[in-house]
Amino acid sequence: MKQGLTYTVIFTFIFCFLFVFILAFVNQSTRAYVLANQELAFKRTLLSSLDIEASTDQDVQERYAELERLPIGDTILYRASIDNSVIYAKQFSGAGLWGTISGILAVTEDLSQVVNMRVIAHNETPGLGGRIDEEWFQEQLSGERIVDLEIDVTKANPGDPGDSDKTNGEIDAITGATRTSDAIAVILYDELQLISSAIRGGL
């Protein structure tokens, strides 16, 4: 096999072109589905953060359409009335350890309680900070009281049972993920300030 410079360059070019072409083709043909999946996933997460039940995809679209949308700055505050109480939800994104953490924070109208917090996307260390998207971590925030517009993310001593008190404005940090836990505290603080000033600003 003759393998001069010309052959090498031409072969590499054709081979790369061929493989990248197939990749681009697959990417283009799946793009619409991927975007639709992401949008649906967002709406589903938003509804679940508001404690609105929606099982089928159709349900999700209908319930989502019923939400009130209030623009604040360049984002949107969602308002839902459930059992005579008003809940606000806002999509957030803030700096984590490795990249942006984005999600949804839902709070009661008087900002006294977190309804739910849901993480949508993050780049935290798998198995450590990455556990912020797990049920047990997010569950801690559901119904947690907000003290002075803050939620503390605290460390327990080894052997301690952890914080199950929903009225002290504190949740447990993740073992081995101090900086992600700190980042969550900062994000929650910033978001609560934003939502508070938006509500007080009179929507």
Binding site: V26, T30, Y33, V34, A41
Partner: peptide
């Protein structure tokens, strides 16, 4: 890509 499309 296939995972994102068919198994989000």
């Amino acid at each position: 890509l296939l995972l994102q499309t068919f198994f989000p």
